[in-house]
Lab assay of single mutants.
Amino acid sequence: GSPGIQSFLPPGWEMRIAPNGRPFFIDHNTKTTTWEDPRLK
Rank of each mutant, 00 (worst) to 15 (best):
G1M: 11
G1D: 12
G1P: 12
S2Y: 09
S2F: 10
S2D: 14
P3F: 11
G4Y: 06
G4M: 08
I5Q: 14
I5P: 14
I5Y: 13
I5S: 13
Q6D: 14
Q6F: 03
Q6M: 07
S7F: 11
S7I: 12
S7D: 14
S7Q: 13
F8S: 15
L9F: 06
L9A: 01
L9Q: 01
L9P: 01
P10H: 05
P11D: 12
P11E: 12
P11L: 11
P11C: 15
G12N: 07
W13G: 00
W13S: 00
W13L: 01
W13I: 02
E14Q: 06
M15K: 04
M15F: 06
R16V: 09
R16P: 00
R16W: 06
R16H: 07
R16K: 10
I17V: 09
I17K: 07
I17Y: 12
I17P: 02
A18N: 06
A18F: 05
A18Y: 05
A18K: 05
A18G: 10
P19I: 08
P19R: 14
N20W: 08
N20T: 07
N20K: 03
G21A: 02
R22H: 08
R22V: 09
P23E: 08
F24A: 02
F24M: 07
F24N: 01
F24Y: 15
F25Q: 00
I26T: 04
I26N: 01
H28S: 06
H28N: 09
H28W: 14
H28A: 06
N29W: 09
T30Q: 06
T30L: 06
K31N: 14
T32F: 10
T32D: 03
T32P: 00
T33Y: 15
T34W: 07
T34I: 05
T34C: 07
W35R: 02
W35F: 09
W35H: 04
W35D: 04
W35V: 03
E36Q: 14
E36I: 14
E36R: 14
D37L: 05
D37H: 06
D37K: 06
D37T: 04
P38F: 01
P38Y: 01
R39E: 01
R39P: 02
R39K: 02
R39G: 06
R39Y: 04
R39N: 06
L40D: 15
L40S: 11
L40H: 09
K41L: 15
K41P: 15
